[in-house]
Design a protein around this nucleic acid. Sequence first.
DNA 1: TTAGTTCGGGTTTTT
DNA 2: CCCGAACTAA
Length: 784
Amino acid sequence: MQHLEGLNEAQREAVLHTTGPNLVIAGAGSGKTRVLTVRIAHLLAQGVDPFRILALTFTNKAAREMKERIAKLLGPQGNTEARSLWMGTFHSVFARILRAEGSKLGYPSDFTIYDTDDSRSLLRTIVKEWGLDDKLYKANLVHGRISIAKNNLIGPEEYLNNVELMANDAASGREKLGEIYRQYAERCFRSAAMDFDDLLFNTNILFRDHPDVMLKYQQRFQYILVDEYQDTNLAQYNIVRTMAARHENLTVVGDDSQSIYAFRGASIQNILNFRNDYPDHALFKLEQNYRSTKTIVGAANSLIDKNRDQIKKTIWTQNQEGDAIRVRRSMSDNEEGAFVAHDIFETRMQHQLPNSAFAILYRTNAQSRSMEEALRKLNIPYRIYGGLSFYQRKEVKDLLGYFRLTCNPRDEEAFKRVVNYPARGIGKTTVDKLMVAAGERKLPIWDTLLQHLHELGFHEGTKRRLVDFVTMVRSFQTMLEGQSAHQLGEYIARTTGLLQDLYADRTPEGISRYENIQELLNGMKEFSEGNEGTDTPRTLPDFLIDVALLTDADNDDPNDQDRVSLMTIHSAKGLEFPHVYIVGLEEDLFPNLMAVQTRADLEEERRLFYVALTRAEQRCTLTYAVSRYRWGNLTACEPSRFIDEIDPQFLDLPTRQQPAWDLKSDRASLTPPWKSRSKAFEGPQPTARPAPKAAPRPAAPPTPQPRRNLKKIAPTGAPAEATSTLGGEVPQLEEGMTVEHERFGKGKVVKLEGRAPDIKATVFFPSSGQKQLLLRFAKLKVVG
DNA sequence: TTAGTTCGGGTTTTT
DNA sequence: CCCGAACTAA
């Protein structure tokens, strides 16, 4: 068995013990991924059908990489085998199952997946419709409550019947939360939409209410593997338990010290209780670290030792001692960025390292800005993971909105987003009326429109515009079959006028938005052709399934890898880098202010810091700033308590007399002499984000051109609708007349200009000063 | 209906 | 400070 070579004793045992329930406690850097991949390859080599193996990973990227590694281990025909594996995140795997089985729960197979924005927007709508206080029922908070409920398998009815929850809500003055939850669930269902949490929640419902379906998957998945088991929540735990009940060949891998997702309902108890759940389990402990230096491992051990809730284990390494962990102080967040950027620059030169050898990790996304600026100044290419992802950008979501509406016309969030973009005269009033009518009939807006348009008392013009919109979307629907995702996508972008609308905006931001849409379409082209082995290209619904659960990290361009990585510590989980900078080590930031209330919270923050430290292979640097900009103003900061919690023998602390970084002197000396300051901004700028390929743009700032509004330039007399009805009512005015305005009261006409129907009057009102009024709109009465 | 301006709130972490 | 929502004028 050649792929077993190079595994240590514990790893080899964990690979070879193929049957029964297995718990693998895998310390940071202990070769966990290796064990998982070799284990799966080993199963396949033994002749297990890849269709009968289910592997649940934490990110799509992890799944993809594991598949590649497995394929390599297997040799020539490995590719096909690896591709047939069921491997992905909980969300993507069960979304797939719900596509196939959702009809049993009343969902079409093309159901939409609502992202967090969609969920919040729907909640805001409900709160507003019910006339509730939106300060009390903040979308964020309400969504959080609903999310926790779903992750704990509490549906709306259970919520309303739960005395404790209801009392809790009442105590905080939010007694309507349960009702909102119920309404939210109804509205999602009516829109044929599931939110992220529904993907897990509804899978549980599916298995609970349809034993035949449950049995099918129980029998199908002979081997189940779960990575990052310490970060599963109850909904996930229950699915795993159910699915594994038949064969009980369940292997879970995790590390309690790296549990960092309690805030989204993950329970460390799942891994701690595995022993009770499966009394005849086998236990494997991977304690040898292959990743980091003795210094880093020692420092991390000394830190995590401060936590009370943990499984005792001894992580050790045979690697060399390595450099001490540097702690560096800066005067401000910008200076901190400058230090890190210059330090990367120097280290890179000294050791001839690629940019990809460096990572900057922070607690919150907002911290990326000062780092970005500093890196840009030194022309160091970087890549930000997380934050506002490509798919969350407005223009991208707009186009995706059309795609969603085409595939699932009941999707109300998509409808509201695109019905009047680009502007087509269907405004808020019309949409509000539609929503009320739909609510009364308990129908999706789309169905209301199809069945009851003529009963709703709209003007002819409005009706016509609505019919035009519906006709357009329906024409897209007829093209769903037979057209590839890319073909239809491009057609939609053009036909709706979205592409032209963006193209017309020649401001730098406008150009970038246009490029993003092009990038999205390019991505779709690749996607459409990606259906290897068959002639049929993949379609728009296929694309939407993928897109909803993609994250930034899944977007790596393999030809563009040599960049410094910037990300939150949460997104760094599972990754490793030779040189790691952990920035912003300040009280209230890390540990975060929101997470110092209870011991459990603080311990999670400490585990987070543990995760950060153990990402480093060679050298780790900790930085903090004495002051930092927080929404606009400078605030003073104290060094994080976490620095003191590391055994000082592993640290290289700043000397008190001399600040580690003197901005004025060092900045000049460290700027590479062969690059004059003025040229530093030229050449291809590093792309901040992956997707939009920042095509090298001319260095000169593009002259902002005045935005042209074509309607206003249109020849006179063209738009007849408004003028013909209002034209007769425009009073005949002359300069010097006294007029009355419904808001401003009486005033005197100073000046008249333009010709009908666009006469503009300048009127002086004693109460509110001089105003310019278009007679077409302003209702003026002649007084004298 | 819509464009432009003011106002208020947001930064914890993510599928 | 920067964004979207709400408000206001046209």
